[in-house]
Computed example of a mutant assay.
Amino acid sequence: MLRLSLGAKFTLGTIVAIALAFMYIPLFLVVINSFSAARLSSWPIAEFSTIWWEKAFVSEPIRAALLNSVIVGLGATVIALILGTLVAFALQRYTFFGKQTVNLLVVLPIALPGIVTGVALNNTYNQVLEPIGIEVGYFGMIIAHGTFCIVMVFNNVLARLRRINPSIEEASRDLGATPLQTFRLVTFPQFRSAFVAGAILAFALSFDEVVVTIFTAPPGVDTLPLWIMNQMARPNEASLVNVVATVVILASFIPVWVSQRLARGADERE
């Protein structure tokens, strides 16, 4: 086991503390400013109030943006669960020509810059599909988010499938269970936590996506991140933006925390 000297531990700890402070202090300021009575963000806070939370709660544009974010996130998650799980099973259980290429193509969307994905899909929708009479509209935004959300499910399920002992499934079939019964009673319970964790991460990734949304959202349709970006040019809306940004922070933090707990619980059971 590698042992660090006291000086090395102190140096490493200081670097980690600075990095964490650099990442999370700005988020903390956003959350604190959402409870400021002032119209403009400031520090220190002169007076605390929940007035902006009350206004955000009754704001129709914010409600509509939140609903759009939830609908798109759920739709993208469903696509990711179906396709990500099927591809994971195909790559883990079968050998075929081009297997590594398929693996690369599935993972590639998460590595591509969002603006590249957005431009590519925008061109496809406007220059290929619309001229032949196919209007993707709202569903096109869901498909766009699903392209990169698939990776979340795929990686989680594939990693868990690689750790499943195939002899358990063989024993189930030997005892007379049908393939569907084996999957429902034996296989699925073994990768269920990875399946759920992948779904949660996919939803969180879709919920706070903005770049791809800019290029694929129908006219007049905003998600919460898109609403935030549009309001940044209006200084008088800064306090409302802080409230919505706080909601997005919580919506991103909670799914990640839950997915980590699920993965840890599965590891402990093994």
Rank of each mutant, 00 (worst) to 15 (best):
G265E: 09
F96E: 01
A21K: 05
L108I: 13
T14W: 09
S167F: 10
W227Y: 15
A88Y: 02
F35D: 00
M1H: 03
V157E: 01
T178Q: 04
Y24V: 02
R163Y: 01
L105M: 09
I32Q: 07
F96T: 04
T147C: 06
A37W: 03
M141C: 07
F215G: 07
S193A: 15
I143G: 03
P218F: 13
A202H: 04
W53C: 06
W53K: 02
T178F: 08
F10H: 07
P26W: 08
L29A: 12
E47Y: 10
V211C: 06
T213W: 00
T14G: 02
L81W: 10
G265T: 10
G75R: 06
I142G: 09
A37R: 14
L12S: 13
P225N: 08
Q260G: 15
F48M: 11
F191M: 05
V244C: 00
L112R: 08
A197W: 09
G137H: 08
V72A: 10
S5M: 10
E268G: 00
F22E: 01
K99I: 06
L27F: 08
A159T: 14
K99S: 11
R269L: 13
S172E: 00
L66I: 12
Y94A: 11
V106T: 14
A197I: 06
P189K: 07
S59R: 10
H145I: 01
A197H: 02
V196Q: 00
G13C: 02
L185A: 04
A217H: 10
A76K: 05
I134Q: 05
T77I: 01
E237M: 12
D208V: 04
I110M: 14
A197F: 08
L158P: 11
N242W: 01
W227R: 13
F203Y: 13
M1T: 08
P235M: 05
P219G: 10
E60P: 03
E54A: 15
R192L: 10
V16N: 09
I142V: 15
R162K: 15
F48R: 03
R234H: 14
T147Y: 08
Q92H: 15
L185F: 14
F195T: 10
G133P: 07
P131H: 11
G137F: 11
